[in-house]
Amino acid sequence: MAERAYWLAWAQAYGLGPILLKRLCSHFGQLSAAWHADGADLLAVEGIGLGLGSKLVEYRQRVSPGELLARYEQQHPNFWTPADAEYPALLYEITDPPPLLFYRGQTELARALPVMPSVGMVGTRHPSDYGQKWTRRLTQQLAAHDVMVVSGLAKGVDRCAHQQTLDSGGLTIAVLGTGVDQIYPLGNRDLHDRIAHHGLLLSEHPNGTPPDRAHFPRRNRIIAGLSRAVVVTEAPARSGALITAQLANDYGRDVFALPGSLDNPNSAGCLELINQGAQLILNDMTLIAALGQMPQLSQGQPPGEARAEKGDSRSDPSRNRPATTPPVPELSAAMAQVLAAITDEPTALDALVQQLAQPTGEVLATLVQLELMGLITQLPGMRYQRG
């Protein structure tokens, strides 16, 4: 039986949150093993006492993971668990990764995370002109240097970050506190549709889930988990953006803050972050320079059985080849097709996607392989030419 069936089954068990679920998997190696373990063995997992342990044993007796998965997939076909190759390894590194991750859009962007740096851009829903200007300015530079932008599709700073990324030809992931089919706030309908077509929408809540105040602080941990670094451009002293920054710090991510005027209440949160040790944004190249100096995160793999599926860039052996030029006949048909579309003149990623009529993530993954093989060269602004 597929391991994802056990992730789904355990995720539906009352009393097991994301933290306990990850501990359970870490203790037994796989959740299928935990499902068939003796009740006494469950008590060895930190956080599972006699009361919860007995309830879990009773729950296992009346639930069939395979049947549950079959029914669930009929209602919610588009979701990942950590057992699936597409589930972002970067996200699984946090202490409380979502056991179910629902998606809509260009799913290949999730595969691109190990090879593309990602930055979370967050801030107030009511930014000043200064906050909007610098959010757009920083995001434009990130897009120009092939950095994926992650945000929460709220009003204000989130909207500025997503919109500028798309306008600049960059890649963006929006993490929602609703189902990925829900428009919230309603004023973001146009942007929601753009991201669904050109980016990726993610949520830990199934389709049809309406807005709930409790969902949005929880959503922030996913933004932090998907990001190598988190930037707060403008935020008051009490702000969800500060929760994201604190979570990012807890997860070992870098935190940056844009300084602002002492007279602006929306700068109070950023100034406090800087006072606590957040890195200071001094100009529009601060982030780019810092990303180049960051060590690679451990990228520990989720315990899925599908890690080595074809097309999963995390298991692609070409990533470990030296940058020499192999004979062209060794290329796969897909790689040869992309290579044929690249000339000695710089070609933008958008133009390649349009010419090849392939999803952005697939083209990007192939470009990474071709670049590592020494056949093409990547230029600033997500442009490519023959190497």
Rank of each mutant, 00 (worst) to 15 (best):
L242T: 08
I243L: 01
I342R: 04
N220M: 08
M285E: 15
T360D: 15
G47H: 02
L349N: 03
V57C: 02
G179A: 06
I195N: 01
M382H: 11
G131C: 06
Q246H: 01
P88E: 06
Q354N: 11
P99D: 09
V147G: 07
S118P: 04
L24F: 07
L113I: 15
R60A: 04
P97T: 05
A70Q: 11
L142V: 10
Y184Q: 03
S118N: 03
L258I: 13
F216E: 11
A2Q: 13
V119A: 03
P327G: 10
Q279A: 13
A112N: 00
A278K: 07
L176H: 05
A83R: 00
V368S: 11
L50M: 03
Q246I: 01
A174L: 14
E3R: 02
P303A: 13
L20W: 04
A278E: 01
L262P: 01
S315Y: 07
K55V: 08
L349H: 01
L280G: 06
L16R: 13
L16G: 11
V175T: 05
D263Q: 04
A154S: 00
A336Q: 06
L8D: 10
S32C: 08
E371S: 14
D284C: 03
G187W: 14
A70R: 14
G15D: 13
L142E: 07
D193N: 09
P18W: 04
E345V: 15
A37P: 09
A241G: 14
V115C: 09
V230M: 00
G51M: 09
I376N: 00
Q358H: 00
I281L: 08
A229F: 05
L8V: 12
K55E: 05
P326N: 00
E371N: 11
V328G: 03
L339D: 00
P326Y: 08
Q164R: 07
T135Y: 01
G311E: 11
E345P: 02
A5I: 04
A336R: 00
L280A: 02
V363D: 06
Q276Y: 02
V353A: 06
C25Q: 03
A11I: 05
E108H: 13
S267K: 03
F102R: 03
D312I: 06
A154R: 04
P210S: 05
R60F: 00
S128L: 15
Q132G: 15
A334S: 09
S168R: 13
G387T: 08
A245T: 09
Q358N: 01
D190H: 04
A224K: 12
G177H: 01
A37V: 12
R23D: 02
T324C: 10
K133L: 02
M373I: 07
L280N: 05
H76V: 09
R383I: 14
G17S: 05
L43A: 03
L258G: 04
L91V: 12
I281T: 13
Y72V: 08
G381S: 00
G53T: 07
G252N: 07
V232Q: 06
L153P: 05
S261P: 08
T325L: 09
L166N: 09
V150I: 15
H145N: 11
